[in-house]
Amino acid sequence: MSEVISSADFQSKVLDADKPVLVDFFATWCGPCRMLAPVLDEVAGEVAGRAYVYKVDIDQSPDLAGKYGVSSVPTLIAFENGQIKKQTLGAQPKQNLLAMLG
């Protein structure tokens, strides 16, 4: 399972990370989010050591959802050196997730 992080962890785990980070902004009640979850976990396993994969529950962390303008779930954002590198909407197949991490 990919770790769900909160606003308190976001700076250290995402923005200050030493490797690329893929963040899944999701909601527990969203169907496509549930379709994406196992694919995301699989990718997290494959990229371990060269990238990080985290999830943000938009109901637990509305401040992060607001900050990144998330108004559709799932939204995936790839960060590198604290900057947004890529952003996609909706459930994505594995190859797209890997491509987001370069």
């Binding site: 169907g31 559709s72 779930v73 909407l89």
Partner: peptide, 16 residues
């Protein structure tokens, strides 16, 4: 505008 007001999934995005 997809994800910025345009949606194809009411149960996903309605809460926003």
């Amino acid at each position: 505008l997809e994800g910025r007001g345009v949606s194809y999934c009411a149960t996903c995005d309605g809460n926003f």
